[in-house]
Amino acid sequence: MCGTCGCSEGNKATVIDLQTGEHTHIDAEGNEIIHTHDHDHSHNHNHEQDHKHDLSSVSAHANAHGTTVALEQAIMQKNDALAIRNRAWFSGREILALNLVSSPGSGKTTILERTIIDLKGKTPICVIEGDQQTANDAQRIKDSGAPSVQINTGTGCHLEADMVMVGLKALKPTAGSIVMIENVGNLVCPALFDLGEMAKVAILSVTEGEDKPLKYPHMFQASDLMLLNKIDLLPHLDFDVKACLAYAKQVNPNIEIIQLSAKTGEGMADWYTWLDNQSAKAVAQAFV
């Protein structure tokens, strides 16, 4: 939904470019509407029912039970096709794209702020921020020194590949950079929607339950890395780190785990090493 112009009816998402302040709407069909305000959709459906029924592409076994037509199509085909396009776009530019997923409040944005500041001058980073409302997070990222766009999904509970595509158009990330896609805080729906990323990174904080990997197994199975954040708070909590790591491995034996605190900086070096290795992988895979 667009807070400035209010033209939210039928829009799936709004993309705000923090550098220029421009915004773009994406409608339910995935079409971009670049802020023209005449939504003059006069849908004149003149169905002149002359019943010719040209079943050219369809085997016309018309009988009393109707005609059964095999479709054999993937429900997610549109999103998946765009995700493949995004992935190829990243790959050709040797860009490492990561999809950061977690519940709200795990510290995704704080981890990104610190990462941007610590890697300044070493690795160019830009960020696509997903939230239902506000451009607060993209503003925080911009204040840390990285280009960012905010995607507001309105009532939507996850980012989709078409939104990322519009975000990339605004950001124009440079070759060899890292694109961080911070998904809407939600451990359920984002697992289903491929955005074209190289890996999903799940963030869990020690102020949440240690059994979250068991409660939301889809997300932890889909992720390559889990960041266990806010470990500076452990002395004040009953959080069982050992049990949490065991649950994560139980759900996904191949998941890598890094314990860190974006506040004190503990463990952040391991995260940067992981990013370096993944960036090297993105370069190596670019033209395979």
Binding site: T67, T68, V69, L71
Partner: peptide, 23 residues
């Protein structure tokens, strides 16, 4: 005892067919 499993089915999200009303 292993949890390292390669999934071969169970994640399908497909439209198989539709039935149209007879003309």
């Amino acid at each position: 005892g292993s949890r390292d499993l390669k999934r071969i089915s169970g994640e399908e999200l497909n439209i198989k067919e539709m039935e149209l009303e007879a003309a």
